[in-house]
């Protein structure tokens, strides 16, 4: 499976729109895209998950790295429109407590 990543910028926010699957094959590409964005002080990185129907734990690793990087560089990260299956992964691993996740779709608790 594939993952497409679209990046656009508006004022202090970088919008990342993902479509496809985040797994061991696609995670490196995502990491290369997202990490540099989190290194800009004062920037918010907003990731749209509406079209991500599968993510495995390698994908979680990318967002953990990104989160750590936002702390180091005084930036912010926000994950939006997450499907229930993907949200479950963040929930089980306790990451919903420390990552800003907003407006889940399809009854994502």
């Amino acid at each position: 499976m594939n993952l497409t990543i679209d990046v656009s910028n508006k004022e202090n926010t970088a919008y990342l729109t993902l479509a496809g699957e985040v797994d061991a094959f696609t995670a490196p590409k995502l990491k290369e895209t997202i990490l540099p964005l989190t290194r800009e002080e004062g920037q918010t990185v907003e990731v749209d998950f509406a079209n991500v129907d599968y993510m495995d734990s390698t994908g979680l690793g990318v967002f953990i790295s990104a989160l750590k990087s936002t702390k180091e560089h005084n930036s912010e990260m926000k994950l939006v429109h997450m499907q229930e299956r993907v949200y479950r992964l963040f929930k089980i691993t306790g990451l919903t407590e420390i990552i800003n996740i907003e407006s889940t779709v399809q009854g994502g608790m």
Binding site: I64, L67, K68, T93, G94, L95, E97, I98
Partner: peptide
């Protein structure tokens, strides 16, 4: 059981 993964914080 809630709990954060090891190695994050």
């Amino acid at each position: 059981v809630p709990g954060l993964v090891l190695g994050v914080s």
